[in-house]
Design a protein around this nucleic acid. Sequence first.
DNA 1: CACCAGGCAAGTA
DNA 2: TACTTGCATGGT
Length: 231
Amino acid sequence: MKEKRKTRNQEPVPRTLTGQKLMDMFDLLVAHFGPQAWWPAETDLEMMVGAVLTQNTNWKNVEKAIENLKGKGLLTVNALCSMPMETLAQEIRPAGYYNIKAKRLMNLIHFIRDQYGEDLSGFFRDETQIMREGLLSVNGVGPETADSILLYAARRPVFVIDAYTHRILNRHGMSEDQANYYELQELFMDHLPEDQELYSEFHALIVQAGKNYCKKKPLCLECPLEKWETE
DNA sequence: CACCAGGCAAGTA
DNA sequence: TACTTGCATGGT
């Protein structure tokens, strides 16, 4: 599986990102934010639904949408599959983009049920690469959604890259500003041990740092990663 | 009021 | 191949 590389501007990464450097980053973030209790969900299905609903959307809004489904007992594979698209769209309305997300959810749930049956455990037992390809074949599931499902629901050691990861690495001069998803993913996975818990904690911490500190332009004051560059 | 949020696919040139 | 745009609610 070869991923695309950029064709222009083949500048090397500005600073060398070593495993030690990444662990320094992780330690700084842990020291500042503490352990993250991320993605609490009662079932694998709930996590998968959440992964789609949270696309470019605040998690608070996602919770409302999930609560709507859960409260009416609609958070099961069969219930979702047999629900009219319009009904589903109305239930998940608070999550925004509700029409397109209803389709995406349907695509995903139907794919799993058709391939593995109503019980999700068959799907979650499959090989990571097979799962990944299957997820990516679903219209509405891109690399981040697929990897989130693999990391947080299937508990596989797959590093999730998001907009914050891009932003933070760029702001700190640790990556090319136009590096693509897979380049950054390799950057982390080539230098860190294959550790699902490390990856899930790390990604959650990056999101915290992004939300709280790396919003403004050059670098935010009191950013926990301020000393990271000179360390 | 403007801006953002735990993306993705389709359209355009 | 490389940009651009639509999708939409709810919080700051």
